[in-house]
Design a binder for these strands. Structure first.
Lengths: 340, 340
DNA sequence: CTGAAAGCGCTTACAG
DNA sequence: CTGAAAGCGCTTACAG
């Protein structure tokens, strides 16, 4: 069964397709009578305008792209959900793209999205080579970065103050009386990770403490990798009394390593994560972590992406960089060292 | 900067747009010489064909829709990732739609996807009213159901043998010597949930045991709701020694309720979940659960959806219903009752 | 082997 | 207030 087109309803309603189009889009004055008649016919024929056709005429596709490292990672799936909801209520749908932080995948997806003429792209994935991005920006397809720094790309970005987040974690641990600390970071190419580490170290420095140079270990961003790295940390002669993990996945790995090593959390070891994903509420002990105000960040980013194009967008050219404050969520995985 | 079109490359290459089109699509014999020239120009101009335009000419949009209750639910985000990967390597992108199992959202998304002329829709969400679906099916947009039964809709479906899954859970608990059991189910409108409960009860029946009529409680599918319902169960005079939860979220709620009530798992209470999501590996104790072979299921569903249209599809009309076997994953949350 | 022309389903000036 | 016509960027017969 072929879908009904604007021609079908025009014929049925006894008007031209131009009038149908005008009626639908509320343009050019169509008399109320005709308009009603047209809408009645549309309903009867179950007519749905083809966005393909109208997109070809320069209108929007009402489709957005979302680039993230991995939808199956709770942190990003939560972002995806927020984006989707916002998009949905604004009439957009979103194409989700998991990049695994691989440049080739980023590139391929970006090209795909361009070919599909999406109305904008939200990027929450690492992109060292801003080349493709810059090209896109030139082609006037709006881009905004979320929870990631735009590496030399002239795009708006909304992110968390990762430096401060690291500081928050350090202060919490310091207040609990810890002094032998370690850091578990994901690969240090990711800018947010670097900032978290820097912030953590700086807070320690301000407090007059310092981190041994071998106290920062980095690994892949997964529970498994985190577990392995944490296990090595715990096997050291001078076992740390607290570990700052740059994301919840790593923190969970650390939790598991501690369990296997028979090290009690938080009595003998404090563990603090980052991101405040659903995972952190589910572990036992529940994870103390640093939360990013994701809902707000998504809302801001979405606004920049979509309204930026809809309004006259007088300031579209001036690149915005919105930084949001993280917050400490204390749960059960951190505490004072049990008696010394 | 306007994007380059087929006209630009035709002009540059000194040929007609028809020839460019043929060269790109490998149709109508284009001499090797011209073809090479054309490709060179395309590269130089960074030409990317518009899928919008070719879709309008009846070609595919290379976009698929995925309907699930909620991307931020780990079970579904894992499905989404598998679908995305398969789609990606076949040249498709996927629009993710979280329906919250609400009919209105299902309907709205379905209509949206239709307007965007997606090449197919994968449905993993409850849909009581098959009406919209049936309409779509008539409009010849391919649909396949995944992990859900197609309610009276003539669409392929690939699902887990939920009845057997429930049975597996029961047998496991039975073998551990339990007799006072209870079930935590999500709203009983969801077909898969009903089957799991039925399977569980049947296995008990075969073993000569029975479930008190008040031993089946249902609630929303969330950790919070599960926790509350489980707490009520645990507060009963005749506290159950084992709870079968129809999904991991509920099981985690039960785990938390037990912790709060001071009931030790698995020593005093066994808890078994369903789905084998990442969450079940992260709890402490780790969750015993029933796994669905999701990767295989997604692969099969995707094949039905995409190849079904690409091949001559001689059997496209005969509706397939593929049922996959679940399996028991024993972790730490189930065990024999400690001494009686 | 190659190109002129029609057409996909819309929208947008422009006449009337 | 309404419609004929051109055009968006492609593809597909059909001539040559």
């Amino acid at each position: 069964m072929k879908a009904t087109t604007i021609y079908d309803v025009a014929k049925e309603a006894g008007v031209s397709i131009a009038t149908v189009s005008n009626a639908i889009n509320g343009k050019g004055n169509v008399s109320k009578k005709k308009r009603d008649e047209i809408f009645k016919v549309m309903e009867r024929l179950q007519y749905q305008p083809s966005v393909i056709a109208s997109a070809l005429m320069g209108k929007k596709t009402y489709t957005l792209g979302l680039l993230i490292p991995d939808v199956s990672n709770p942190f990003f799936s939560e972002i995806a959900r927020s984006v989707e909801d916002l998009a949905h209520s604004a009439g957009y749908s979103v194409i989700v793209c998991s990049t695994d932080n691989k440049d080739e995948r980023v590139d391929k997806y970006l090209r795909l999205l361009e070919q599909k003429s999406v109305d904008g792209i939200l990027i929450g994935t690492g992109t060292e080579n801003g080349e493709t991005l810059t090209q896109l920006a030139q082609k006037s397809i709006p881009i905004v970065m979320i929870a990631r720094e735009a590496a030399g790309v002239s795009a708006h970005s909304v992110l968390t103050d990762d430096f401060k987040g690291g500081g928050l974690a350090a202060e919490h641990l310091l207040a609990l009386g810890h002094s032998r600390m370690a850091i578990l970071a994901e690969k240090l190419e990711v800018s947010s990770s670097v900032e978290r580490v820097r912030g953590f170290r700086f807070a320690l420095f301000e407090a007059g403490t310092e981190l041994g140079s071998d106290s920062i270990v980095s690994c892949d961003s997964s529970i498994k990798a985190g577990k392995k790295a944490a296990a090595a940390l715990l096997a050291r002669e001078e076992r740390p009394s607290a570990i700052f993990c740059c994301n919840d996945l790593l923190a969970i790995g650390a939790l598991q390593a501690a369990k296997e090593a028979g090290v009690k959390v938080p009595e003998q070891l404090s563990i603090i994560g980052f991101d405040d994903t659903i995972l952190s509420t589910v572990t036992n002990p529940a994870l103390t972590t640093i939360a990013q105000p994701m809902d707000q960040m998504v809302k801001l980013a979405f606004g920049l992406l979509v309204d930026g194009q809809e309004n006259g967008a007088p300031d579209a050219s001036i690149r915005q960089r919105i930084v949001m404050p993280p917050s400490l969520i204390v749960r059960e995985s951190t505490g004072k060292l049990a008696s010394g």
